[in-house]
Design a protein around this nucleic acid. Structure first.
Lengths: 242, 242
DNA sequence: GAGTGGTCTAGACCACTAG
DNA sequence: TAGTGGTCTAGACCACTCC
């Protein structure tokens, strides 16, 4: 009952993989333009149409961004429009608001068995643990604990987190060369414990939305494990099913 | 600050819209094959490539399903693979399991102000209200209240719900000619009230995942409003961010 | 005006399915 | 073997951005 191996790999998919390899290798940085379609066609000795189809796939996976008349760009978390790509919380009333992040903790630790399993590390490997609160309109709405492989995030500190503007994924990609491209989330309801209640300004036992996430970089390599607790009395988690 | 009108509508998009209109009109039923690309190209007097691009868009929106060597088919909720397209609950351990639906109630009522707003009806218009429980492995996991426009679901009854095999969306499309193609969900955490606690076998106050959904048919017309309460002690709501 | 991505066509050939 | 969708090419032209 093994999965059938692909008996045929179209040319455009091979080109796609070559471009992907260049992205992984950092040949073009996030936000930068990649060569034009005609240049890539010449480089790979294929027609422009084949390159177009390869790029279209990568754009569909949000790894590239096409802009007519300007070029094709490596996806980045630096733009405001990307701010809420991975953060699906929305206020009941009004438009999505900018948030403010306050990291209360950023320490080195040893990977738990669970962290090791999810991040494909060995138990005991070094990790970075971040604890932070996201505030919307001044109010604490999200409490998060983030776990990262220590080896990939060597210089990460509370100071660096505080100094950095924009989303933490922007920090990952600019300071540590690790763009996040996909994430799996598990959502549950949970009662606030004493710590969460205090951080979010609710009474203990209040139902909170628990969002557990593993985020991946190129090659489906897991890089970040986080657990968020969301207040959902004035906000909700938006999802679109298609 | 109005949205800029599309100054240019590509041919393939016009063809897309024509095919969409045929789908809306029911020219081809869910599950049935649409004409081949060459036939459509002849009908619309465009090249096969243009039809291909139109179909590719509709397939990307999950309105059509392409199968090499066989043809292109109208999307349907009748297939098992589609069972969990709109139901994102997954057990902590093991593979997704089939579920059993028990409707405890199916009655006619007048639309509340909120139901009218969400379903684009007038307050007081006739609606159908369904209350049901979904069981996984015999255990009640999801409690749902579903509201539908009465005018579109004239013969719907508890008996019909009970007789029908498969998902309720399959019922909508086969018995009432209304395929569901998209849904917006709002997720929150909520404490179980007495009724929910009894239905799901938990103590009152237990945190439950609240899933409020509006589902749409062709033309972004809202057709279904539902609120689900999910037990998440042994299951979770799965989401993929890309 | 030069350069980019976007559209459209026509045709050849390939891979897959079914009878 | 016939018919379907899938791939690949080459070329012409369009729409958009920037200088």
């Amino acid at each position: 009952m093994s999965a059938t191996a692909p008996t045929f790999l179209p040319l455009y998919r091979q080109i796609r993989d070559l471009i992907l390899r260049s992205l992984e290798a950092g040949e073009w940085r996030p936000g930068a333009a990649i060569p034009s379609e005609l240049e890539l066609a010449a480089r790979f000795r294929v027609s422009q149409g084949t390159v177009r189809k390869a790029i279209a796939e990568l754009a569909g996976e949000n790894l590239l961004l096409r802009r007519q008349g300007r070029g094709t760009f490596v996806a980045t978390h630096s733009e405001l429009r990307q701010q809420f790509r991975f953060l699906r919380i929305v206020p009941d009333e009004g438009a999505p608001e900018p948030y403010e992040s306050r990291a209360s903790e950023c320490r080195r630790a040893r990977a738990s068995v669970e962290a090791a399993r999810l991040l494909e590390l060995k138990p005991g490997d070094g990790v970075v643990c971040i604890r932070r609160v996201l505030r919307f309109g001044g109010a604490p709405i999200v409490l998060e604990e983030i776990t990262l492989p220590g080896s990939m995030f060597k210089g990460l500190s509370a100071a660096k987190l505080g100094k950095h503007a924009g989303s933490i994924y922007h920090l990952y990609e600019t300071e540590f060369g690790t763009p996040m491209i996909r994430a799996d989330e598990k959502l549950r309801a949970a009662a606030a414990d004493a710590g969460a209640a205090q951080a979010l300004g609710v009474v203990a036992g209040t139902p909170l939305l628990s969002v557990e996430r593993v985020a991946f970089t190129y090659g489906d390599r897991p890089v970040e494990w986080r657990r968020g607790l969301y207040r959902t009395d004035k906000h909700y988690y938006r999802n679109v099913l298609t």
